[in-house]
Measured scan of single mutants.
Amino acid sequence: YETDHQDYCEVCQQGGEIILCDTCPRAYHLVCLDPELDRAPEGKWSCPHCEKE
């Protein structure tokens, strides 16, 4: 299903190369994640907010 994702990072509120959560509309820079990621994850990815739930 399609979600309207943010076009900015949930953490720093800036645009650029962001990865999109497959569960919610949030988006993140790899370096803004904690722990940060070296590269975009393959397959489905859930953001830290969704992982907690």
Rank of each mutant, 00 (worst) to 15 (best):
residue 18 I to K: 08
residue 28 Y to P: 01
residue 52 K to L: 04
residue 28 Y to W: 14
residue 3 T to V: 10
residue 38 D to A: 11
residue 41 P to H: 04
residue 9 C to A: 00
residue 53 E to R: 05
residue 26 R to S: 13
residue 43 G to Q: 12
residue 4 D to R: 06
residue 52 K to P: 13
residue 8 Y to G: 14
residue 4 D to K: 11
residue 2 E to I: 15
residue 53 E to A: 05
residue 13 Q to T: 11
residue 20 L to H: 10
residue 32 C to H: 07
residue 42 E to Q: 09
residue 23 T to L: 06
residue 33 L to Q: 07
residue 22 D to E: 05
residue 24 C to Q: 00
residue 41 P to D: 04
residue 32 C to I: 00
residue 25 P to A: 13
residue 40 A to G: 03
residue 15 G to N: 10
residue 15 G to L: 04
residue 44 K to E: 09
residue 19 I to H: 09
residue 22 D to W: 11
residue 36 E to K: 09
residue 49 H to L: 08
residue 7 D to A: 12
residue 22 D to F: 04
residue 39 R to N: 12
residue 13 Q to S: 11
residue 45 W to L: 06
residue 30 L to P: 12
residue 5 H to L: 14
residue 29 H to V: 01
residue 52 K to T: 12
residue 35 P to H: 10
residue 53 E to G: 09
residue 22 D to S: 12
residue 16 G to W: 12
residue 21 C to T: 04
residue 33 L to T: 06
residue 47 C to R: 01
residue 43 G to P: 13
residue 3 T to F: 15
residue 15 G to A: 15
residue 24 C to V: 00
residue 13 Q to G: 07
residue 36 E to N: 14
residue 9 C to V: 02
residue 42 E to C: 12
residue 8 Y to I: 15
residue 41 P to W: 04
residue 27 A to M: 06
residue 10 E to D: 14
residue 16 G to R: 14
residue 38 D to P: 08
residue 29 H to P: 01
residue 29 H to Y: 00
residue 12 C to A: 01
residue 46 S to H: 02
residue 24 C to H: 00
residue 21 C to S: 02
residue 31 V to M: 11
residue 7 D to R: 05
residue 19 I to L: 13
residue 47 C to Y: 00
residue 19 I to S: 07
residue 51 E to I: 03
residue 46 S to G: 11
residue 30 L to E: 08
residue 32 C to V: 00
residue 10 E to I: 13
residue 46 S to K: 09
residue 36 E to H: 08
residue 47 C to Q: 01
residue 14 Q to L: 08
residue 47 C to K: 00
residue 17 E to N: 13
residue 42 E to V: 10
residue 16 G to A: 13
residue 12 C to V: 01
residue 3 T to E: 15
residue 18 I to C: 02
residue 42 E to T: 07
residue 24 C to M: 00
residue 36 E to S: 04
residue 53 E to V: 04
residue 42 E to M: 06
residue 10 E to H: 13
residue 15 G to K: 13
residue 44 K to A: 09
residue 7 D to C: 04
residue 52 K to R: 12
residue 6 Q to L: 05
residue 23 T to D: 04
residue 41 P to F: 05
residue 24 C to L: 02
residue 30 L to T: 10
residue 42 E to S: 10
residue 6 Q to R: 08
residue 33 L to Y: 08
residue 2 E to L: 15
residue 46 S to M: 07
residue 35 P to S: 10
residue 33 L to W: 11
residue 20 L to G: 15
residue 51 E to D: 04
residue 24 C to Y: 00
residue 31 V to L: 07
residue 12 C to N: 02
residue 9 C to R: 02
residue 36 E to D: 02
residue 7 D to Y: 02
residue 28 Y to H: 14
residue 14 Q to P: 00
residue 34 D to Q: 09
residue 14 Q to I: 07
residue 42 E to R: 06
residue 23 T to E: 10
residue 28 Y to I: 12
residue 44 K to C: 10
residue 5 H to M: 15
residue 8 Y to V: 13
residue 46 S to Y: 13
residue 35 P to F: 06
residue 28 Y to T: 06
residue 51 E to Q: 02
residue 22 D to I: 11
residue 4 D to G: 12
residue 43 G to R: 08
residue 34 D to L: 10
residue 25 P to M: 06
residue 19 I to C: 07
residue 45 W to G: 04
residue 1 Y to A: 10
residue 13 Q to A: 06
residue 8 Y to S: 11
residue 6 Q to W: 04
residue 1 Y to F: 02
residue 16 G to V: 09
residue 51 E to C: 08
residue 18 I to P: 07
residue 38 D to R: 04
residue 15 G to V: 02
residue 25 P to Y: 05
residue 20 L to E: 12
residue 47 C to I: 00
residue 11 V to P: 12
residue 13 Q to C: 10
residue 35 P to N: 07
residue 6 Q to C: 03
residue 52 K to I: 04
residue 44 K to L: 11
residue 6 Q to F: 02
residue 31 V to S: 10
residue 12 C to L: 00
residue 20 L to S: 14
residue 17 E to L: 05
residue 34 D to F: 05
residue 28 Y to L: 10
residue 22 D to P: 09
residue 23 T to Q: 03
residue 50 C to D: 07
residue 50 C to M: 02
residue 11 V to A: 08
residue 9 C to S: 02
residue 51 E to N: 08
residue 37 L to M: 11
residue 16 G to T: 15
residue 16 G to D: 10
residue 20 L to V: 10
residue 51 E to A: 06
residue 18 I to H: 13
residue 21 C to L: 01
residue 34 D to M: 03
residue 25 P to G: 06
residue 44 K to M: 11
residue 8 Y to A: 15
residue 42 E to A: 07
residue 52 K to D: 03
residue 51 E to F: 06
residue 15 G to D: 06
residue 36 E to L: 09
residue 35 P to L: 09
residue 52 K to W: 03
residue 31 V to K: 08
residue 44 K to I: 15
residue 6 Q to M: 09
